[in-house]
Design a protein around this nucleic acid. Sequence first.
DNA 1: AGGGCGAGCCAC
DNA 2: AAACGTGGCTCGCCCT
Length: 607
Amino acid sequence: MDTNYKLITNATDLRIACDELSQQSIVGFDTETTSLDPYSGRVRLVQFAAPGGSVYIIDLDCFSGGNNGGAANNGDGIYHDEALAPLKKLLAAARPVKIAHNAKFDAKWIKRQLDVELGGLFDTLLASQLVSAGNTEDRHSLEVVAARYLEERVDKAEQLSDWNRELSEAQLEYAARDAAVLVPLRERLVERLKAENLIQCATLEFDCVLPVADLELAGFYLDQARWREQIANVEQLRARLAGELQEMLAEGTMQQASLFGETRVDFNIDSHVQLTKALKRLGVPVPDSTRNWKLQPLAEEYPVVKKLLEYRTVQKSLTSYGENILDPKSGYINSHTQRIHANFHQIGAPTGRFACTQPNIQQVPHAIEYRRCFRAPDNRKLIIADYSQVELRILAHITGDQGFIDAFNSGADLHRVTAAQVFGVPLDEVTADQRSFAKRLNFGVVYGIGAQRFSMMTGLSLTESEDILRRYFATYRALDTWLREAARRAVRERTARTLSNRLARFTFDPADKQAASLAQRNGKNMPIQGSSADILKRALRLLHDKLRDSSARIVNIVHDEIVVEADACDAEEIARTVEAAMCAAGEEYVTRVPIKVETEIADEWVK
DNA sequence: AGGGCGAGCCAC
DNA sequence: AAACGTGGCTCGCCCT
């Protein structure tokens, strides 16, 4: 396969190429880098493909700066060469629109090493994910997406080749091809986005790329000394519990041995096979599995079971939130920044929610011992802002239920109002227990809860639970109607949509009752959870624009929460900015009830 | 040995 | 009649 490319190695050619490219309204865009970490590697090539078929490959090795030495290198890893000015201008401009596959990746390098914020983006990865509408079977690598939408193959064999040395013809061909294929690919994806009414949602997603790139570049600071201290404490506790548990399990047989100072043969208490054997020997009626929820009912009668459950909790937190995060082998703490640069997948879930990996800093335990390790560096502050009951507000807006809307508009406590209705008592006589039931009910409804599950959760009998659910839906009639309609749509049309029109498509065998009821629950939940994701993404963009050229950086996002780090002297002002941007984003989608954001300034990630 | 998978548990 | 949604990480077990 021939691609017509021109390799740019000097200032004059670069100027001419950039002039030519700036005439275009769209261009394919890609970079080749010497590693995956913008703090340790460098950008080798920048490629642009014009719709006419000509490709420009710019070899940054021929320009001074970066990590590559040279007169203009200030040692900061940024290219300062004046000759790159036309390139930077082209990158920053809103036109031409740059088509990239996973633009976040390129945006990070361009920001970090050319000190330029990419303007005008079309991301073929995000577009492909939107069109797939939550089908988790579909893969979205450029190779796969190009094969799906074009009748062409893109060979990615050179992707991980060495971009440090003199480049081979094969490498240049690959680099050119990667950029060129994006032009027709975008055309096909635009057709599909239009056909599925997903243009608005795609814009929302594309607008979110730069904020996410910046978030990953910024990283979250972790106080390693505190983390070690925490591990040590938990380790001590684990050792004590493990010892006690071994004693209890060995009861009767090994007692003698340990009395005489012999080494006790320990069980592997993390193995449910060995555990079952040991527990049975002690006369514990072990259920068909040693899953925690199965063992829970035995805890009161059998102290050994209680001890085991206690041990498991501690053991779990130690393996999941232990040494690994600090281990250089994990690479989670960047050696250049000493911060955690987690990977945020912009469309991580079919609902549109983010997913976070390596490490997942969206699942740090809420306990203060853990959260206090994530703190602001000296002279900095954290601004922690989260949407208050945003999913329930979205539910109120989408269903138009007057009871819900009134509760939010009056500023009343929704759970208390719900409790009063469901239990038939005056508002001021609602007990703490009743409010707690109502709260679990309100949240459960978002997930499509049933009476069975509710009775399990609350300890109420099945009939009591059925009765409460009946009264709940009798109270909130419009909510009931909407949920039924959402379930029906999930089965008949097999779709659901959020407030940004994000689409989820359900595929299941109609004969499979379980799959069908899962689709129904998804049909109810996706618009709610997904609209919350829409709002967060809109907030990220608004906030990103407001924070540009300030001391503030977004350092974490957790579904309905944004954590910003800023100079201590700016914290008050930034906090107001964050709250305003989040409210504005919410109000773009939710108009029937107020949007509330709770904001705090803190030294640690603790509210 | 190493991948796949389920169990378990963390977040929202 | 009805098994409450979305993720990630780590472990042990099982299989190749």
